[in-house]
Simulated scan of single mutants.
Amino acid sequence: MQLRVLGCSGGIGGVARTTSFLLGDRVLVDAGTGVGDLPLDALCGIDHVFLTHAHFDHIACLPMLLDTVIGARRQPVTVHALPETIATLQVHVFNWQLWPDFSVIPDADNGVLRWAPIAVGESCDLDGLRMTALPAQHTVPALGYLFETADGAMAFSGDSADCPAFWGALGRVERLRALIIETAFSNREAGLARVSQHYAPETLLPALARIDPSVDVWLTHLKPLDASCIVAEARNGVHRIAALNGGQTLDF
């Protein structure tokens, strides 16, 4: 399985795109602004979207995706998320004011959007890919995800501060090859990271001691103005740590 990074920035500007990953051809993880760079045929081929949480930088392109592909879909696009995330999007986005409710378009029995609630620990099997919801700690209800194939596994933290349950779940994963983990702020803004429930390098590095040093660590959600500083502060010589980049692909 290949993961393609459509967006991994904590902001916009130039080539920066917000969080979205494409697994194979059919599965999106989050739907940030990077989704908008996909060609039309690729957009039409997306069957599943797994959301980590409801913040705008992670769902910005979901409304436009549904509007774009409606004429090409014979089956709905299934959006997997926490019940709290679904409720937020129903009330504040797909509410006929900010955006139409695509769960009842073109009609109530054949909506192009199908909601699929998921809870921490639950898994979904999709053609050789297993998606498992992992715990996260953020300012709103949030998830991380574990991606598994017969060959290996990769984890994604979503937006999260230090979450012991997340690291405990990773400790039970066999053949974990890589971890994509958010590190939104540099150490000079560690106070802001704590308030907004994100990592800074000073909180990330002690947390990484809980996993095997052989696991590749990819930093995501870096604030654009501090990206190089965050990476420099996070490199500790123990784990293989690098910044994720838009357009990058990872195999697992």
Rank of each mutant, 00 (worst) to 15 (best):
H58W: 04
A209Y: 07
L113I: 05
C229Q: 14
D212Q: 07
D125N: 10
V79D: 05
T249R: 13
E122Q: 15
A119N: 05
D107N: 13
L143I: 08
V215N: 06
V35W: 08
V215E: 06
F94Y: 12
G45S: 15
R235E: 09
A42D: 13
R4E: 14
A190P: 00
L51S: 03
C44P: 00
V238H: 11
L170N: 09
R17A: 06
E122V: 04
D67Y: 12
G14V: 02
G237I: 02
M154A: 15
A155P: 04
D159E: 09
L38E: 02
D127I: 01
A190V: 06
C61V: 03
F50H: 09
E202T: 08
I70Y: 14
V69T: 06
F252K: 00
D30N: 15
V231T: 01
V27R: 13
L126V: 15
T88P: 01
G71N: 09
F156W: 10
N245E: 14
L204C: 00
I118N: 01
I46N: 08
L43C: 08
S186M: 11
Q248F: 02
L146D: 10
D151Q: 15
I181Q: 02
K223V: 07
L204N: 00
H239M: 10
P201I: 03
P206E: 12
E233K: 08
T149C: 14
W115R: 01
D101I: 00
M131A: 12
A142Q: 03
T33G: 10
L219K: 06
G158Q: 08
F166M: 02
I86C: 09
I105A: 08
V173W: 13
T19F: 14
A184C: 09
F94I: 01
A133R: 11
G11M: 04
A42I: 01
H92S: 06
L134Y: 06
I181D: 02
P76M: 09
L89F: 14
A142I: 02
L208E: 02
H58N: 11
H58A: 10
I46M: 09
L219H: 08
W218E: 08
T85M: 12
G247V: 02
D30F: 13
A193W: 01
T149H: 15
E122F: 04
T220E: 10
G45E: 12
V238A: 05
L129R: 08
R172T: 15
L244V: 00
D37Y: 00
N245D: 10
H92L: 07
D127V: 01
S228H: 03
P117T: 02
L143D: 05
I181N: 01
L208H: 05
